[in-house]
Amino acid sequence: MYGWIWRHLPGNAWVKALVSLVLAMAVIYVLFQYVFPWAEPLLPFNDVTVDNQ
């Protein structure tokens, strides 16, 4: 998969590295801004099974 992406990016190796870094940062931004907040209420991280006794 990464080889396919690398072959389809424009430019030489430096331009490809810069474009791939920008793409990775964009994916991380979208995950933290939209995907993780949407999925957080659906995940059982706050379901604690230990009672205070």
Rank of each mutant, 00 (worst) to 15 (best):
A39W: 09
L31P: 03
L21I: 02
F32V: 13
L21R: 02
L42R: 12
D51Y: 11
P44T: 01
R7F: 06
L43P: 00
L43M: 14
F32L: 14
T49K: 12
M1R: 10
V48R: 11
L21D: 02
L31Y: 15
I5H: 03
V35D: 09
A26F: 07
M25Y: 02
K16S: 00
V19F: 00
G11M: 01
P10D: 01
N52W: 10
W4F: 12
Y34G: 08
P41N: 08
L42S: 15
W38Q: 04
Q33F: 06
F32N: 15
V15Q: 09
W4P: 01
W6H: 12
L31N: 10
L18P: 00
F32E: 14
I28R: 11
F45C: 04
A13M: 03
Y2A: 11
V15H: 09
V15D: 03
Q53M: 05
K16I: 00
V30N: 11
I5N: 02
H8N: 15
I28Q: 12
K16N: 00
F45A: 02
T49L: 12
Y2N: 11
N46H: 12
M25T: 03
G3N: 09
V27M: 15
M25E: 06
V30D: 08
H8D: 05
L31F: 14
L9A: 01
Q53D: 10
A24Q: 04
L21P: 00
V50W: 03
L9T: 00
L43R: 06
A26H: 05
L43F: 09
I5T: 09
F32H: 12
Y34M: 12
E40T: 05
A26P: 01
G3F: 11
V35T: 11
V27H: 06
M25L: 15
L42N: 15
W6E: 10
V22P: 00
H8Q: 14
Y29A: 15
P41S: 12
W14R: 04
A13D: 14
P41Y: 03
A17G: 02
R7P: 02
Y29R: 15
N52G: 14
N46S: 07
L21T: 04
Y29M: 13
I5G: 00
W4M: 09
V15G: 01
L42M: 15
W38K: 10
L43Y: 03
F45I: 10
G3H: 03
K16Y: 01
W38A: 08
M1S: 14
I28E: 09
R7D: 12
Q33S: 12
S20P: 00
Y2K: 08
V35E: 10
D47W: 12
F36I: 14
H8K: 13
W6I: 03
L21W: 02
W38F: 12
W4A: 07
